[in-house]
Amino acid sequence: MRNEELIPADEICVRYQVERQFVSSLYESGIIEIVTVQETEYIHCDHLAEFEKMMRLHKELDINLEGLEAINHLLKQIQDLQKDNVRLKNRLGLYE
């Protein structure tokens, strides 16, 4: 993992104006991943979009952590179903 792909969690909190506890809670819930390098916690840039999504839902829709966990789980299910749907449509297209 390259260092430039890691963003310090503290910097993210300042930039997005969220409490450090919010980032920790997301990590503890398994919604985002945190990488620790030399006692500093980082979020990988690939997981930033997921973090931003959760932050928007939390800030803008007042959804608490339990709600975010449920939403995260259901969104993953929706994505899987959408993928399956596309795959099946493509398969079907071969026979039409």
Binding site: K53, R56, L57, E60, L61, D62, I71, L75, I78, Q79, Q82
Partner: peptide, 15 residues
Amino acid sequence: YRKLARKYHPDLNPN
């Protein structure tokens, strides 16, 4: 607004 935003928020309705 809050009620409808929760229903139609793009993060909750991917694609």
